[in-house]
């Protein structure tokens, strides 16, 4: 592993917020699985965590970390290292630690209480969402030097993906209720990483609801191996595109 990533990792592992986050995930997940008498309900609680807490903590922690590392980044930039490598290494370090926190906190009870396939899916989604929102944090942190502004943008982006986007979808659904828009809607959900993760997990979890008239169309797309692969690919794009944009900006930034 590359040196910068290692240094970022050792730095974060000592971070109190990170420890608290892991503990919080663990408390939520364990209580979800032990208090509810069926693992289905536990999984649903976990789903809510993945859809709300994980993106929020990922985006906030990463944004603040980037701002707090500005000196470190400055120090590195004066060294004979490619700028791209610096940015990518810090991103890797943050992603790994957030993903690890999720796996340690939520993954362990999941592994014990859910089936192995479910564990793979939910843990995979949790990791992908963590990484995607880390990338989104990089995107919002690079565009302004002002820490408060950067954090504000991050929180707004989180609010947008967690809440406003769905409101927008609902609005569109009612605006175009007279048209056959199911297929278009499948495409539109791809515009939010949280929705993508939610639908992918729901299709495995709560099939009853997703079946029926609309469900059939989603099942047709998301339920097939191809649709699943495309969705995962889209989630990866949600990591790749914000990060690529921030990388481009970082390479052309004065420090």
């Amino acid at each position: 592993m590359n040196r910068i990533t290692q240094f970022v990792l050792t730095d974060i592992f000592r971070n109190k917020i990170m420890i608290a986050y892991t503990a919080l995930l663990a408390v939520f997940s364990w209580s979800a699985f032990t208090l509810e008498n069926n693992s289905q309900k536990g999984l649903l609680t976990l789903l809510n965590i993945i859809l709300l807490t994980v993106p929020l903590v990922s985006v906030l922690f990463s944004t603040i970390y980037i701002y707090n590392s500005s000196e470190f980044i400055e120090l590195l930039v004066s060294q004979p290292i490619k700028r791209g490598k610096i940015w990518f290494s810090i991103f890797t370090g943050l992603s790994i630690s957030l993903a690890l926190a999720f796996l340690l906190g939520a993954g362990v009870p999941l592994l014990l209480y859910a089936s192995i396939g479910m564990f793979g899916l939910v843990a995979g989604m949790g990791v992908l969402v963590s990484v995607a929102f880390t990338a989104i944090a990089f995107f919002s942190a690079i565009f302004t030097r002002d820490k408060a502004k950067g954090i504000g943008i991050s929180v707004l982006l989180w609010l947008y993906f967690a809440l406003l986007f769905d409101g927008l979808v609902l609005f569109l659904l009612f605006q175009f209720a007279d048209y056959p828009i199911e297929n278009a809607m499948v495409f539109i959900t791809a515009l939010s990483p949280i929705d993508l993760a939610r639908i992918l997990i729901l299709l495995q979890l709560d099939i009853s609801a997703m079946m029926g008239y609309t469900g059939a169309i989603f099942k047709q797309f998301f339920g097939t191996a191809l649709g699943f692969s495309i969705s995962v690919l889209l989630l990866c794009l949600w990591t790749a595109i914000p990060f690529a944009l921030s990388l481009y900006r970082f390479q052309h930034k004065d420090l």
């Binding site: 809510n48 809440l163 609902l170 828009i181 939610r198 729901l202 609801a209 609309t214 469900g215 989603f218």
Partner: peptide, 15 residues
Amino acid sequence: KNPPAMLLYRSFMVT
């Protein structure tokens, strides 16, 4: 009223 709204099932907004 709008069956495709099932798409939003279990989203934070619906909750």
